[in-house]
C-alpha cells in the first residue's frame, strides 16, 4: 500500500504498488481477502479505479457500516501495509476501444468507480468515442471524484450530476433520483444505439435499466453491475 487517499467522508482510494500486475481491462475488479488472527477469512470484490497503463493500481472503496471488509480498508489501512488480492477478474462489465460507442455511463454512488478506469483509459488511448456520464450522489460532499469530474468535460465526456438529498445553494445540476425523465433528457436517442453501462446499488440499477429499456434502448446493449453500496 503506497497511499490511502480520502475521497469523501465515506470513501477512500487505496493506491497499491503491484510490480507483477498483469494488466486489466477497464471495468474489471479484484477480490480483496482479509484474514483475521484466528484464521477467519472474508473476501470482497472491488472495482479497479485506475487505467491499465498506470503505474499504480487504485481501488476506491466505500465504507459500509455493517460491512466485514470495507470498514477495515477505509479506516484502518495505512501506507506500507500489505494487502492480499487476486485479479483482475470479470469480463462482462468492461469497456475497451474495440467495443466502440457512443457510450452512456450511469453511476449511483460508488458505482462511479469502474467508470474512472474507463475514462482514464479512454484518454490514455486517445479514443474519440463519445461519452455521456450521469452520476447520482446524495450530496456534493459525497460525490466521489468531484474534481476529476469537473475536468472531464475538456476530454469530451459530457458529465451530468444529480444530487438526491441535498443541493448546495445555487446548484445548477439535476436534483432528485434518476428516473425516466432525467434519462430521456441526458441519454442518447435509442436509434443512436449507445452502449450503456449502469453501476450502483441494486435498486438504483434496476430503476435505471428498466427506465432505459422503457425509453427504447436495447436490453442487450445495457450492461449492469450491482453491489451492496449506499448513497445514491
Amino acid at each position: 500500500m503506497l497511499q490511502v487517499r480520502t475521497e469523501t467522508p465515506r470513501t477512500a482510494s487505496l493506491v497499491l504498488d503491484l510490480p507483477q500486475w498483469p494488466g486489466h481491462r477497464p471495468g474489471q475488479h479484484v477480490d480483496v481477502r482479509l484474514t483475521a488472527d484466528d484464521g477467519y477469512q472474508a473476501q470482497r470484490s472491488y472495482s479497479i479505479a485506475s487505467a491499465p497503463d498506470e503505474d499504480q493500481l487504485v481501488l476506491t472503496v466505500e465504507r459500509l457500516d455493517d460491512g466485514e471488509v470495507s470498514p477495515y480498508l477505509v479506516d484502518e489501512l495505512h501506507a506500507g501495509d500489505q494487502l492480499e488480492l487476486r485479479g483482475p477478474v470479470g469480463g462482462y462489465f468492461v469497456w475497451d476501444e474495440p467495443l466502440g460507442g457512443p457510450l452512456l455511463w450511469v453511476a449511483g454512488g460508488s458505482g462511479v468507480v469502474p467508470f474512472r478506469a474507463m475514462w482514464r483509459y479512454r484518454r490514455s488511448v486517445g479514443s474519440a468515442v463519445a461519452v455521456r456520464l450521469l452520476c447520482s450522489a446524495r450530496s456534493l460532499p459525497l460525490l466521489i471524484y468531484a474534481d476529476e469530474l469537473r475536468q472531464l468535460a475538456c476530454d469530451g465526456v459530457a458529465v451530468s450530476v444529480t444530487l438526491t438529498r441535498e443541493q448546495p445553494e445555487g446548484w445548477q445540476g439535476h436534483r432528485g433520483r434518476i428516473d425516466r425523465d432525467l434519462l430521456a433528457e441526458i441519454s442518447w436517442r435509442p436509434d443512436e444505439r449507445a452502449l450503456v453501462y449502469v453501476c450502483g446499488p441494486t435498486a438504483f440499477v434496476e430503476a435505471a435499466a428498466n427506465a432505459l429499456v422503457d425509453l427504447g434502448h436495447e436490453a442487450s446493449r445495457i450492461r449492469t453491475e450491482r453491489f451492496g453500496g449506499t448513497g445514491t
Binding site: Q43, S45, V89, G90, Y92, R226
Partner: peptide, 24 residues
C-alpha cells in the same frame, strides 16, 4: 432485495470453471 450480482463472483466462478464465466 439482493445486494450483489454475478459480477461479484467472477473469481470463484473462474476457480471452478477455469475460464471467465460472467459472460456465459
Amino acid at each position: 432485495m439482493y445486494d450483489l450480482d454475478g459480477n461479484a463472483i467472477a473469481a470463484p466462478l473462474f476457480d471452478v470453471f477455469g475460464v471467465e464465466m460472467t459472460t456465459a
